[in-house]
Design a protein around this nucleic acid. Sequence first.
DNA 1: CAGTATCCAAAGGGATACTG
DNA 2: CAGTATCCCTTTGGATACTG
Lengths: 103, 103
Amino acid sequence: MAAKDTLTILNGKWKIQIITTLNYSGKLRFMDLLRLIKGIAAKMLSKELQDLETNQLLKRTVLSTNQLIVEYELTPHGKTLERIINEMRLWGKLHRKKITGDK
Amino acid sequence: MAAKDTLTILNGKWKIQIITTLNYSGKLRFMDLLRLIKGIAAKMLSKELQDLETNQLLKRTVLSTNQLIVEYELTPHGKTLERIINEMRLWGKLHRKKITGDK
DNA sequence: CAGTATCCAAAGGGATACTG
DNA sequence: CAGTATCCCTTTGGATACTG
């Protein structure tokens, strides 16, 4: 199922937040993401970034090796997720209204 | 995050398949779903159906109690998921092409 | 028929300490 | 700075047997 694939790729507790944060801010360094995404641990950030990079949704660039500096940014392919994430956001809001308003 | 909510609701190994199966076939009984969704175990089907019912995405109807017969069908709210599932399917296909075509 | 109960293995994810 | 390693708890999901 292609739909399930999409779900699997976006799954993980922090992926959507990472993607939307990068989509909003452009290029960010590891520490920036760690600071902007409240509650995430370095281990999880690292792991989720690797997953996303494997799926070619973001690009990792080492800017400097002696004083280690790394930047992350969405690829064009990663940016194509914006549309579907927006749809999810809309449906999620609709759903909340449905659930809370119904009872 | 509303987008994450949508993901959470659709998550679980079988939810999308259950939804699309019901969306395609209309009303189905427990055994029908068990037969149509290859590989699912009764425990999982039961649990996923309960999750979906809790979120008001489907309706469970007992047709007979002496000879126990139960039918499941999507609610109108559940049917609103069709749009977003289709978007996921489209993006999933795009992604496969991207990944396999790239290397 | 339509489930539930039990047991278990694997994956997900957090806290903390450590490294090039 | 940008991670990795370790430990450990929780969640997910499968197999099998049982029930009203």
